[in-house]
């Protein structure tokens, strides 16, 4: 049987890995949305993680765990730089400060000859794989549930529901916002590193604005009542284009339509179950 499964895994490898990696990206979006903020820089953070880790692998030959630390750390630093000035302003500012991030990073990669410039970076070693990707996903899901059920999770929900009221109740709102964005950037960076190390080649244009919108649609479709929502949203939207291959050019049309209809008609997403908490009124 193993030959058959090896063949199946070979043929559909990109899809199977894509399911896991996109689910991680969906979770990274969830962390920001759970606190009532919107970041449109998730694809950019993913790209930073991909570039940082690939450069360390290709140029310095560092081991994968070391590389992953950079894949999480560098995007987190960048998130800090972009988000700090917006923390005390309305949520709109974070969204538009991150909207141009992908484009400016693309220009940066293109002009950076050490990282291959416009030619991209090829020959990235094959690391990670099935168990690493899905193991990380399981770990992150477990962590999201643990945090969500704790005092921190309740504070996050309070901020999402009413920022001012949460502040009055003594929650340090800017600190929570900052932490959420930095953690989400780190998660996106790790997803970027996994993706780069299973596809062998990355290029400056791979992390454009369209990808950021696609990541947002994972979370919106799945709903942000529970961390499982974005994961299932990502599974659905990753498998769907493969099933709807004949759609070709109209695939993005569908993505746009999903976002519009979910926000207007199903603001809680497709999977609208809610995380149960200790002490929650039921």
């Amino acid at each position: 049987m193993s030959a058959f499964f090896a063949n199946l895994l070979f043929t559909y490898q990109s899809l199977i890995y894509g399911l896991g990696i996109n689910a991680i990206l969906g979770l990274s979006m969830y962390v920001v949305l759970a606190i009532g903020q919107l970041s449109l820089g998730q694809a950019a953070f993913m790209g930073v993680g991909a570039y940082a880790s690939s450069l360390l692998s290709v140029k310095l030959g560092l081991s994968f765990p070391v590389v992953l630390v950079a894949a999480a750390g560098v995007p987190a630093m960048l998130a800090l730089l972009v988000s700090v000035p917006t923390l005390r302003l309305s949520g709109v500012y974070l969204a538009i400060a991150t909207i141009g991030l992908g484009e400016v990073l693309r220009l940066f990669y293109v002009n950076w000859d050490y990282a291959g410039g416009a030619l991209g970076l090829s020959g990235i070693p094959d690391r990670g794989g099935f168990f690493t990707i899905f193991g990380t996903l399981a770990l992150l899901l477990a962590a999201a549930f643990a945090v969500g059920r704790s005092r921190i999770g309740r504070a996050m929900e309070a901020i999402r529901e009413d920022e001012q009221a949460a502040g009055v109740m003594g929650i340090d709102v800017p600190r929570y916002k900052l932490a959420a964005l930095v953690i989400s950037a780190a998660i996106a960076g790790i997803a970027g590193a996994y993706n780069a190390h299973v596809t062998a080649f990355i290029a400056p244009g791979d992390y454009a604005f369209d990808n950021a919108v696609t990541i947002l649609s994972y979370a919106l479709l799945g709903g942000i009542g529970s961390p499982l929502g974005p994961v299932f949203g990502a599974f659905l939207l990753t498998a769907l284009p493969e099933l709807l291959r004949p759609l070709h050019d109209y695939r993005l049309v569908l993505n746009g339509l999903i976002i519009v209809s979910v926000v207007i008609f199903m603001p809680r997403g497709l999977f609208s179950w809610h995380m149960r908490r200790i002490g929650a009124a039921k």
Partner: peptide, 24 residues
């Protein structure tokens, strides 16, 4: 009376829809 960011998201989806329809 949806939250402020809902309008951002809905116009984002609409933009993607309109552009890709137009380029298709």
């Amino acid at each position: 009376k949806a939250p402020e960011l809902a309008s951002l998201m809905v116009t984002l989806g609409a933009t993607l829809f309109l552009y890709s329809l137009m380029s298709a």
